[in-house]
């Protein structure tokens, strides 16, 4: 698309949208958001980039192939279930590491897996549509 306005606006907006996606991803644990929504947001951001600057631009921006990203996401999500096995708990039980004020655990990894898998899926369809 040759709209200069959209192109310029995209350059400003894409960073904002990606940062917002990270924000939505992180706030998901206490408020609406999470890996899936964040992936949709990031997917929208990249769609904007693809429409204005072309698919090649998106490929350069994400550096890895979207199918690899999707599979890595699946692997990460499945891998997040493994630590539980070492503690003798069922697969995918959340394992937590916590201090007085802060807690992090395998569900965070699992959510990252969701994010990557969904984003990879969206991007692979998007790029296929754009490049066809």
């Amino acid at each position: 698309m040759k709209s200069v306005i959209l192109k310029t606006a995209t350059r400003l907006m894409i960073g904002l949208m990606l940062v917002f996606a990270v924000y939505v991803f992180l706030r998901g644990h206490h408020e609406p958001g999470g890996g899936f929504s964040a992936a949709l947001l990031a997917g929208t951001a990249f769609s904007l980039l693809a429409i204005t600057n072309g698919a090649d631009h998106v490929r350069k921006a994400i550096r890895i192939r979207p199918s690899v990203m999707a599979l890595a996401g699946l692997a990460l999500a499945a891998g997040a279930g493994l630590p539980a096995l070492f503690f003798g708990k069922p697969f995918l039980t959340g394992i937590w590491w916590q201090t007085e004020t802060f807690a992090a655990g395998t569900p965070l990894l699992f959510d990252s897996g969701i994010f990557l898998a969904v984003l990879g899926a969206i991007l692979s369809i998007l790029l296929a549509l754009e490049e066809n």
């Binding site: 644990h29 206490h30 609406p32 999470g34 916590q98 569900p107």
Partner: peptide, 9 residues
């Protein structure tokens, strides 16, 4: 599960 957003948890 240390989360307040039930849906996401």
């Amino acid at each position: 599960a240390h989360g307040r957003n039930i849906v996401n948890v």
